[in-house]
């Protein structure tokens, strides 16, 4: 899908304005948001310079794997620990996600994820949107008469996220 010139400018601004050249990320321990609750002492976190695409894909994968019943805030660290098979790396990625969320906060999907994790927004906002998208999609599928079993399979694979709703 092509990007509009406005979106391209956003990408440029993200890359130019947001400085991200430190080797380590600074940690401000405030203990009251998701990102700070995991460590109790000051330690150096390697800056992995996460780019927008990787951040977006990681967030998408977290949503895809998360069960509806489990709250996002309770799930992210478990996901990262399983994914990277290490609590230390999970912690590192966690802080890097926080850094990326700040740098790419003008991206809707990244910003929403971050706001849910920091308690500024309800997780239901995300689920409500997905439910509405699924409602439109399901309505259009019903209108469609030329259905073959092969295309049904392809559809389910592509839209598993929507069909969960």
């Amino acid at each position: 899908m092509g990007k509009t010139s406005e979106q391209l400018v956003d990408v440029l601004i993200d890359e130019i304005v947001q400085k991200n050249d430190e080797e380590y990320l600074t940690m401000n321990i405030t203990k009251n948001t998701f990102f700070e609750q995991l460590t109790s002492e000051k330690m150096l976190i390697k800056n992995r310079h996460m780019r927008r695409r990787i951040t977006g894909l990681l967030i998408k994968d977290i949503w895809l794997n998360k069960l509806y019943k489990i709250k996002l805030i309770d799930y992210v660290f478990d996901y990262l620990t399983k994914r990277f098979d290490s609590k230390i790396i999970a912690n590192e990625i966690n802080y890097n996600i926080k850094d990326a969320c700040y740098r790419y906060r003008n991206n809707y999907e990244i910003n929403l994820f971050c706001q849910i994790l920091t308690g500024q927004m309800e997780e239901n906002i995300y689920h409500y949107q997905m439910k509405e998208f699924a409602r439109i999609l399901q309505y259009l599928i019903k209108l469609c008469s030329n259905i073959s079993s092969e295309s049904v399979c392809n559809l389910i694979i592509r839209f598993i996220l929507f069909l969960n709703y």
């Binding site: 899908m1 990007k3 509009t4 927008r52 695409r53 977006g56 894909l57 967030i59 998408k60 991206n107 809707y108 999907e109 509405e132 998208f133 439109i136 999609l137 259009l140 469609c144 559809l155 592509r158 839209f159 929507f162």
Partner: peptide, 20 residues
């Protein structure tokens, strides 16, 4: 119509779903 529900390579929805 399925193209309206595709995400781009950064996991962002298209203009139609943004509008919705």
């Amino acid at each position: 119509f399925l193209l309206l529900f595709m995400e781009d390579d950064e996991g962002c929805v298209g203009e139609f779903l943004k509008g919705v």
